[in-house]
Amino acid sequence: MSTIRVRSAASYWLAVPAAVWMLGVVVVPIALLAWVSLWGGRTFSPASPLTVDNYTKFFANKTYLQLALSTVGHTALLMVITGVLGYCIAYFLTMKVKSPAWRLILFLAFIVPFWTSTLIRGIAWVPFLGVNGVLNQALMFTGATRTPIEAFLYSVFGISMAQVSLYTMMAAGPVIYMLNAVAPQLREAAMTLKAPPLVVFWRIVFPLTLPGVVIGQVLVFLNVMADFATVATVGGNKHAMLSNLVLLFYEGSQHRAASVVAVLLMICMLIGVVAAMKVVDIRRLGADR
């Protein structure tokens, strides 16, 4: 019999500090948010009657629905771009860079920017993409264009550029981990069974790293859906995602509408995570090996 007593009561006490913390800063606020989103009546008070009117109003507005749809579309595009770039970076770092020193240097080069806050890194794109920005100056210097292109900044293009740079390593990180776990003999065995390199990748390496891809995609999905800061700074208030709508309503003291959008945003994210879990059971990661 094992001497590790899984059901020991003492082990539950170890979870208490974290549980209390999570209850206080996550569970209770979310419950409050959901509650507020159901408040009806004219006065903003806990005495309000509960109703789904706030939600009906949201869904009755075509503009809001389009915004929700474009947010999901934008997030999907970001997931594709960061997924492909992230996988390429991960594959290059683990499979192509043989020297451990170089691997570390390159990995740090990718990671060090993350020591700066997301907001700063987002804002840093403004002088790069602006009318007098680095990109336009370079294009005009090389003669590719005579007048600066305004579409770079304060546009969906600019937002996407910034977000790709912010979130690609989130897609790459879990893949790096999974690629390192693929035993070289598996690829060699496939090769001796007449599989050329692309087939080895598609039949052996990619399926074995799929959990990493999915985890990376979940991270990117959650972050892009929630990212109002980059959209606000690089998008320059000309563009909005669902998360910006929360801010907008909040600043206009429309707390009930803000709660509705926040709750809907959370539901979207939850659906995304559940869908990801259907593809790969990330809770059982590594159990096969």
């Binding site: 060699e188 065995a189 090769m191 052996i204 074995l208 096969d288």
Partner: peptide
Amino acid sequence: DPPWQRDIAMMFQDFALFPH
């Protein structure tokens, strides 16, 4: 010639079965 063009098969010490 690369391995996939040779008339061989190989058995590895830890068998290298594809886990998925």
